[in-house]
Each structure stands twice: as C-alpha cells, then as structure tokens.
Simulated scan of single mutants.
Amino acid sequence: MRTILARGKGVALAEWTDGDGEWFDEHSDGVFDVDRDGRPLPFTAPIHRAVVTTEDGAEVLGVVSWHPVTYGPSYGCLAWNFGRALLPSARGRGIGTEVLRLLVRHLFDSTDIDRIEGSTDVTNTAAQRSMAKAGFTREGVVRGGQLRDGERHDLISFSILRSDVTDEKLTASQIGRAELASGDG
C-alpha cells in the first residue's frame, strides 16, 4: 500500500517506491523525453518524486518530480521547478490539471517556498491549457530549453506564487491542507 501525499478528484499523489521509475519507463510512450548526453550535471540538487495514482493508490497513472532552483543567494530566492508525465491512457481526462492542483497544495502546505514553476514544449498545447486551468501564469518562451532527438526545443514557462492561491485563482478545496496519511475514521 502506498502512502498518499495528497488526494484529489479521482487522483492522488503517492510516495515514490523502488521500481517506479523503471515501471513508468516501460509503460510510457516517452513523447517528450529529453536526450541524455552522458555528461554529469555540474551541481546536484535533491530531486523529489511522487507517482500519480488513482484516488485509492492502486493504479499508477503517471509521475511528478520537483527540485529546488534559485534566482539569488538567499532562501527567499528559491523556487520549486516541477515536471510531470502521464501515461498515454491517462491523458485527455483532466488528470494533469488535478495533479498540478494537488502538487501546488502539497508544496505550499509542506514547505515555505513561495514560487512553483514548470515548463512544457511549445507544441504541447494540452499541457499549456492544463497549467493555466490549474492557476499557473504563462511567463514566456524558454528558447532552446530542452534537447530532444538531437535538436533544441523551445518551452513555454509557467509559474504560480503562494500569493496567487489567496487571490482566489484556485478554489477553496485546492487551498486546503495536504493529506499526509489517512485511516479508518
């Protein structure tokens, strides 16, 4: 049984377990996977991962990850950068939007970082609509931000601030406390 981090309308974010990455890679179509060029990154940042599951945690629908990025030398300059991928069978059902709402709620409830950001391919209009529906603001184009199939691809960047949540861009149910555990009663 997986530990549920946050639960929403038909989906949940659950703790990452051994083998989840390999399982997801075997079942994904990899449509937006980036090239791995073999060079190590010149820095390390902790990468946090969760699986997207059905509300009961029984079926894996996708993955989400987040890591810190900084725009200056102080803690106040930190942001969370996230990535998400849904299995082909889970796309087109509104799950991506609900996943983002759950992730926003989880990160703002469990940390004191005030900015969450993410980006998507310029051709991935479904993901762009999903981010907007989840309350994210479109910021602009990240030119050549990803290397896929040996070519540079532009991305569209989005962000949400903690203060956006209180601006009623998100519903009251999305602002509520994250569910870290549940049981009978």
Rank of each mutant, 00 (worst) to 15 (best):
T125F: 01
S110G: 13
L5C: 10
I160W: 02
L61C: 03
L87D: 05
I116E: 00
D56Q: 15
L147K: 01
E55Q: 03
K169L: 08
L180N: 14
G21L: 04
S110H: 07
N81H: 11
V69H: 03
F43Q: 12
V69P: 03
A134H: 04
F43G: 06
L87I: 03
T166L: 13
Y71H: 00
L86V: 05
I113N: 08
M131E: 08
S110P: 03
R36V: 14
S182W: 10
S74M: 00
V52G: 07
L41T: 01
T54C: 02
A181I: 12
V69S: 09
L155R: 03
D35G: 07
T171I: 06
K133Y: 11
R115S: 10
S182K: 15
S159L: 06
G92F: 08
A181H: 15
E179P: 11
V31R: 13
V31F: 12
L103S: 08
K133A: 15
N81S: 05
S119A: 15
V34F: 05
S163L: 11
A50K: 09
A85P: 02
R2N: 12
A45K: 00
L180P: 15
S65M: 06
V60M: 06
M131R: 04
L100I: 06
D35F: 01
G135Q: 11
H48W: 12
G150N: 00
P42S: 11
D154I: 12
F108A: 09
G185R: 11
A14K: 03
A45G: 08
G30L: 06
H153F: 00
Y71M: 00
D164T: 06
P68L: 14
E55D: 06
L102K: 09
C77E: 02
L147F: 09
E55W: 00
F32R: 08
R91Q: 14
V104R: 07
G62F: 01
G92Q: 14
S65L: 12
S130I: 02
M131Q: 13
F108I: 07
T137L: 11
R177D: 11
G145F: 03
E15Y: 12
T54F: 10
G150E: 04
T97L: 09
G30F: 09
E59P: 00
A85N: 12
G62K: 03
H27W: 10
G8L: 10
S159A: 07
E15S: 06
G118R: 03
P46I: 12
G140S: 04
V99F: 13
R36A: 01
Q146S: 14
D35M: 07
P73W: 09
V142M: 14
L87H: 02
H153P: 04
T166E: 14
G10W: 11
H153A: 10
S74I: 14
G10R: 07
G57A: 07
D29G: 04
A127H: 12
T111R: 07
V141G: 05
R177F: 11
R105Y: 06
Y71E: 12
D121F: 03
G10C: 06
S159D: 11
V31G: 00
L147W: 08
